[in-house]
């Protein structure tokens, strides 16, 4: 009888302890999840700043801050390049810009239609948002799907993020804004519409995802031949500072070369694999040359690229067997 009572008391105490631990733990978890992207504008040239994301895949740890965005402070307002992966990101981006300048935001340019580059649009509802026609179409067609997939991948960081479409059509050519000569270049290859912004006044080139730096290139909407042609255009530009879509800022042309070398190797690997009768999974396991081993996310991006690009390549080596007969 006595032992039973003791047992009860023991049980209640243990339960109490457990509960209090659980409460403490969840309080700690919430504190950790303050959803602060810790955005620090990095000054890369006169009037010009970049937010450099991690070279990782989307995760609940990084909240989707795996992308580079930036801004140029002119006498007629601030030009922002890309709005990032979420509402929270763009709010913090806008606050960080405010901490640098009192100039209002004059306009936004979106480099292309991938979710890490435009899902912060809603924070700039009072600002004209420019994008190429193909980018507008892409966001319209795939934006909702991208958005729900981002919620799945980075979770609560996305809270309150809603799709907001670009309001203006970007056109290739030169504009002058507040003392800056800005050239807009309409290219393609990473997607059907890749917009670059080249500031002739400072020599800064915002290259978008046409250039990756020490991070494996991604290809969900890529056309490698067009992409290689675009890289040739980029290399001919007299830039002083290159801001890639992903990876560190560079003053050299090496990231362009590296992106080119990888795309050429990828295309050749797919072509030769098809000629040898390899299946998708066999190409995914193909050894990657030493020169690419330092690229982050190499194997997972290669696997994704095989899924994107191999179906068209392998179809070229198959013969129509019974087609004439059944027609």
């Amino acid at each position: 009888m006595k032992a039973q009572q003791y047992g009860k008391a023991y049980l209640v105490t243990m339960l109490g302890l457990l509960l209090s631990f659980a409460c403490l733990k969840s309080a700690w978890a919430i504190d950790k999840q303050s959803h602060d992207y810790e955005l620090k504008p990095q000054k890369i040239a006169a009037d010009t700043y970049a937010f450099i994301g991690r070279t990782e895949d989307f995760s609940r740890q990084n909240g989707g801050y795996i992308v580079n965005t930036g801004f140029i402070v002119t006498d007629e307002g601030v030009v922002v390049i890309d709005t990032g992966p979420s509402r929270r990101f763009a709010e913090q981006q806008r606050a960080a810009i405010k901490s640098i300048t009192d100039q209002p935001i004059a306009r936004i340019y979106l480099t292309h239609h991938h979710p890490d580059h435009f899902l912060g649009n809603q924070v700039y509802a009072d600002v004209p948002i420019y994008a190429l026609p193909a980018t507008k179409q892409g966001i319209q067609a795939e934006g909702e799907g991208f958005s729900s997939n981002m919620y799945r991948m980075v979770g609560d960081w996305m809270r309150g993020t809603e799709l907001s479409l670009p309001t203006e059509t970007a056109q290739a050519g030169m504009i002058e804004l507040g003392g800056h000569k800005l050239e807009l270049l309409a290219l393609q290859g990473h997607t059907a519409g890749d917009l670059m912004l080249f500031d002739h006044s400072t020599g800064v080139l915002f290259a978008g995802d046409l250039v990756f730096n020490q991070r494996t290139a991604t290809t969900p909407h890529a056309d490698t031949q067009q992409w290689l042609a675009s890289l040739a255009v980029i290399q001919a530009l007299p830039f002083k500072v290159l801001v890639p879509g992903h990876g560190a800022v560079s003053t050299a042309a090496e990231p362009i070369e590296e992106t080119r070398r990888y795309l050429i190797w990828l295309e050749k690997t797919l072509q030769e694999g098809a000629k040898q009768g390899l299946s998708m999974t066999e190409i995914m396991q193909t050894p990657v040359p030493e020169q690419f081993q330092h690229l982050s996310l190499l194997r997972s991006e290669l696997q994704r690229s095989v899924t994107h690009l191999y179906p068209q390549v392998e179809a070229q080596v198959l013969k129509a067997i019974n087609w004439e007969k059944t027609e």
Binding site: A315, K319, I321, N322, T326
Partner: peptide, 20 residues
């Protein structure tokens, strides 16, 4: 419907057949 595209690759001792 029912269209078959295929090819056979000769490999030493173990050929490969792919068909769609």
């Amino acid at each position: 419907l029912g269209r078959v595209d295929a090819n056979v690759w000769e490999r030493s001792g173990n050929n490969r057949l792919r068909m769609r």
